[in-house]
């Protein structure tokens, strides 16, 4: 459905994206993961025809994203990464404008979305909070029932409850057979929604993996607080990978084998257990760097 062939864009400052090639299949939820500045948005801007590739091409449904951009955009719903709306409008005026520009005939699905996201469309956009603006953007991206949905950092600004609503929405769209392409710099966000994931770093595509594969590759860090000081030494000599320890608190890295971890811990008096939030680099980049060194 979405096809990138050696897509390359070199900006005057030498940065950009280089030889990005991958395919998103129809009906798939495809995650696009990478730290800020990795080239995710640049890639997405090519899909919308905002940028002309230096080399290579991008297609959606067989249409060239630069040369046949109008046909592409008839199929696509897009949520930009930066929230900036035209000035001086209420939410509803903007949605009406975009519906008019899309020559939409029915607003039934749009009204349903507004209802579900609990969006007050009467507010002038400049008075809306970041999360509310994001909802307006989401409605604008989904309201015309597009075949392909492209979302650049969709959950930024949404509170956890709304994030869940959003994930439910995506699942429904997937069930309708939509192709969904979404970018993020947060793995858990991708993990919950996507089937496959592409990882970008410094403008290059590092890998395209099945999300389950990635989950098994992921190294999680647990902070274990033991009740008894004397057990610390015992835990340190266990086969678990201990990153560091400080008094009764021990930090343990687990990759894939959660059962061994749980079995070992069952022998101790555990007072508290915490999962450490890690940056994307901590989770994956070490893996790719290592693999890169081996090659």
């Amino acid at each position: 459905m979405i096809e990138l062939q050696q897509l390359t864009k070199v900006f005057p400052n030498g940065r950009g994206i280089f030889d990005v090639t991958f395919t998103v299949r129809q009906g798939e939820v495809f995650g696009f993961l990478g730290p800020n500045g990795a080239g995710k948005s640049t890639t997405i801007r090519h899909l919308l025809g905002f940028l002309k590739p230096t080399k290579g091409r991008a297609f959606i449904h067989g249409f060239d994203c630069w040369r046949e951009s109008v046909r592409v955009k008839a199929l696509v719903g897009y949520l930009p990464g930066e929230i900036a709306f035209p000035e001086g409008m209420t939410g509803m005026e903007l949605l009406d404008l975009l519906a008019g520009m899309r020559r939409m005939k029915t607003t039934r699905y749009r009204d349903e979305l507004i209802e579900r996201l609990q969006l007050d469309t009467r507010l002038p956009i400049r008075k809306m909070s970041k999360g509310t603006k994001q909802k307006v953007g989401l409605v604008a991206a989904l309201m015309h029932n597009p075949e392909v949905i492209i979302l650049d950092e969709p959950t930024s600004g949404l509170d956890p409850l709304m994030q869940q609503t959003f994930i439910d929405l995506l699942r429904e769209e997937k069930q309708k057979g939509k192709t969904i392409f979404l970018s993020s710099h947060i793995f858990p966000e991708i993990e919950r929604t996507c089937d496959r994931v592409a990882i970008m770093k410094d403008g290059r595509l590092m890998a395209v993996n099945d999300v389950h594969e990635l989950q098994s590759m992921q190294r999680k860090l647990f902070d274990v607080m033991l009740s008894r000081e004397e057990e610390v030494a015992q835990l340190l000599s266990s086969p678990l990978e201990v990153i560091h320890h400080d008094g009764r608190r021990v930090c343990i890295a687990v990759q894939g084998d959660y059962n061994a971890f749980i079995r070992e811990l069952a022998q101790y008096q555990v007072q508290n257990l915490d999962l450490r939030t890690q940056s994307l680099e901590d989770i994956f980049m070490h893996y790719y760097d290592r693999r890169g060194d081996e090659q």
Binding site: L48, K73, A74, P80, E87, L98, M101, A140
Partner: peptide, 22 residues
């Protein structure tokens, strides 16, 4: 400026260009 430069600069042009209009 308001009709063209500002929407490009601030990014709101993205919404207009995301519609199937050349």
């Amino acid at each position: 400026n308001q009709l063209l430069a500002r929407p490009i600069d601030r990014g709101s042009m993205a919404y207009l260009l995301a519609t199937p209009n050349s």
